[in-house]
Each structure stands twice: as C-alpha cells, then as structure tokens.
C-alpha cells in the first residue's frame, strides 16, 4: 500500500512537471520565438486555456502528499520554506500574467506582462530543477526528522548542505534545458508562421544539446549518490520506465524527421515522464536522504499514514482520476490543433 502511494505521488508530481513543463518552456522561449505582439499573443494563446488545469496537478500533489505522507510534507515544506514561497509567488505571477496580459491591447501593458511571464517561468524551471536536485542529493536531516535548508552554504554536497551546490546547480540548468526543449516541441505543434519555424529549429537544437547534458548529469549523480544508479539496475520497475524513455525518444525523433508534430510532443512527453519516474523508482524507498548521516533518512514507511487511511484513499483516488481524464478528453477536443488569435480579440483563447 505504501509503495502504491509512493507511485501515485510520483505519478502526480511527474504529470504536473510534464504538463506544466511545456508552459515553463514556452515561457522561457517567449521572447526568442515570438518577436512582435501578434506572435506573442500566439504563444500565450497556445498555453492559455489549460494552464489552470495543469496547475491543479500541483495542488492535487500537495493534497495527496499531506494525506499519504504527512511527515514528508511537514519536514520538506517547512525545511525549504523560502524556496517554496518563491515557487508559490512565481506560480501566482505567472497565472496573473497569462490572465490579464490580453485584457488590454495596450503595448506597454502587454510588454510588462510578457516580462512577468518570462521572468516567472524561468525562475519556476530553475527552482523545480533545484528541487529535483535536492531530492536526489538529500537534505541535512537532523535526528528529529526535520531540517532547515539555507539557499547556499559551502556549495558542497555532503554534511551541512544548502539548496544550491555543485550538483544541484547543474541539475537545475539541465532541467531548464530539457523543459525548454519540451516547450519548444509543444509550440511546434500549436503555432503557425514564423513562431512555428523558429520553434522547430530550436526544438531540434535543444534536444541535441540535451544528450551531452544528460551524460554529464548522470556522471555527476554517480559521484554524489552512486547507489541510485545501482538501484536502477536492480529494480524491474525502473527497467519499465527506461523502456518508456526509449520509446518516447524514438517517437520524438520520428516525429521531427517526418514532421509529425503531435508524435514529437507525445514522444517528448513520454521521454520526460519516463526519466522522472525512473528517478522516483531509483530513490524508493527513501523519501528524504540525509546528507549528514545516512541513518537519519526518512523512508516512505516512516512518512506514511496508516494503511487503513491509504486504503480508503485508494478507493476514491482511482475513480477521481478516471473522472479527471474524462474532463480532459471533453475539453481537449475544443483546444486541439493550432491556435487562432485575432488581433481584435481581447480574450485569450
């Protein structure tokens, strides 16, 4: 039961990052692929209708975390206090910039909200990347199962670590890179004209750049937590997620080669999904690794609510997921294909 909920939590967080990751990527590329206001409205419209649906996955992840792993929620959120509020503020600013940017056709107004949009998306990608780096590297847990993570200490990966160090900074940059590539792939599918041309070119180059970056990150991870890579080799679940990665990469390459943009997006989605789930499988059963003393780590069983609660929750979670997928199918029909933006249209979508 605990393993099931570990899987559900990993699934929800991964789904959030994969879905909202394309918005981060589109936001990072906003000024690069779109050079004038018409083009920028197109980018915003590409992510506009569904951003709140994507963000709900983040809220849902928070809810599931407090329900299934109350100790994890308590330790990690208070321990990363300031970084977490930075994320929340960026989420807030990003949402506002999408909602109000199109409300007026004033040039200054739109340029201002475009800047907020880019800034908050860049910072979100950086912070989520750093967060993943910290999960992999571990946090300075003390004996009571709590910690307080400063932004930086001595940039080392052992002992009294900070949020940023020589492992988490490259990890963060890697996440920015791969999410940007993912966002470019999404824009390739949704846009037309000059934005489309630039997105295609960028997406190809970025995905090529991801390959050496991925090798570097894997090597760094081997230096920081060698047991993680060994864990992948020993765990059949991780083999399955690696197959998903491979299938995703194959689909994406084919998608780009034959200009089947939907296939390319599907491929990049599965590639990201597979990578993150492989990470989750490698970490199991440790939820918070301790950099100060490996014996102080918190495992899923340490953090979990009693089996009875988890069983009750499983009984309603799966029907709820099916309902959510039904909603998605209904609305997806209305948002499929390329976006249309009218210059006169004050609305976003």
């Amino acid at each position: 039961m605990i393993a099931l909920w570990y899987g559900i939590l990993a699934f929800m967080l991964t789904t959030y990052i994969v879905l909202d990751g394309r918005n981060f990527g589109a936001g990072i590329l906003h000024w690069i692929v779109a050079r004038n206001q018409d083009e920028r409205r197109q980018v915003i419209a590409a992510i506009g209708p569904l951003w709140s649906w994507h963000e709900v996955w983040l809220v849902g992840t928070g809810g599931v975390m407090v329900m299934a792993f109350p100790r994890l929620m308590a330790a990690s959120f208070s321990g990363c206090y300031l970084a977490l509020f930075l994320i929340l503020w960026c989420v807030l600013l990003r949402g506002i910039s999408i909602e109000v940017g199109g409300h007026m056709s004033d040039r200054l107004w739109q340029e201002f909200w475009d800047a907020v949009f880019v800034f908050s998306n860049v910072l979100l990608a950086v912070l989520f990347g750093a967060a993943l780096g910290n999960i992999a590297r571990g946090v300075p847990l003390t004996g009571d199962g709590v910690f307080y993570l400063p932004f930086f200490t001595n940039f080392g990966v052992h002992g009294n670590v900070g949020l940023l160090d020589w492992y988490t900074v490259p990890m963060s940059l890697f996440c920015v890179l791969i999410l940007t590539a993912h966002g470019a792939t999404y824009l390739t599918m949704k846009t037309t004209g000059a934005v489309h041309e630039r997105s295609v070119r960028l997406a190809r180059r970025l995905w090529v750049a991801v390959i050496p970056a991925f090798v570097i990150i894997t090597v760094l991870t081997w230096f920081v937590r060698p047991e993680l890579l060994a864990g992948i080799a020993l765990r059949p679940v991780a083999w399955a997620t690696l197959v998903i990665c491979a299938a995703g990469a194959y689909a994406m390459v084919n998608g780009f080669r034959y200009q089947r943009e939907y296939l390319a997006l599907l491929g990049s989605t599965f590639l990201l999904f597979g990578l993150l789930m492989t990470g989750a499988a490698a970490l199991f059963p440790v939820m918070l690794f301790s950099t100060t003393d490996p014996n102080l780590r918190l495992t899923a069983a340490d953090c979990a609510a009693p089996d009875f609660s988890l069983g009750i929750a499983a009984a309603w979670w799966f029907p709820a997921l099916i309902l959510a997928i039904c909603y998605l199918c209904i609305i997806q029909r209305h948002y499929s294909g390329k976006v249309n933006v009218s210059k006169d249209n004050q609305g976003l979508y």
């Binding site: 809220v59 928070g62 809810g63 407090v66 329900m67 979670w317």
Partner: peptide, 17 residues
C-alpha cells in the same frame, strides 16, 4: 500536518481530485 495530515489530507486531496 504531521499530527492530523493523515485525516485532513483526505479531504484536501479529494478537493483537488
């Protein structure tokens, strides 16, 4: 959260889902 999360988390998660 640590004290009551296992209970109130049920409805917080239901709200999201």
């Amino acid at each position: 959260s640590k004290y009551a999360g296992g209970i109130i988390g049920q409805t917080l998660a239901m709200e999201g889902m």
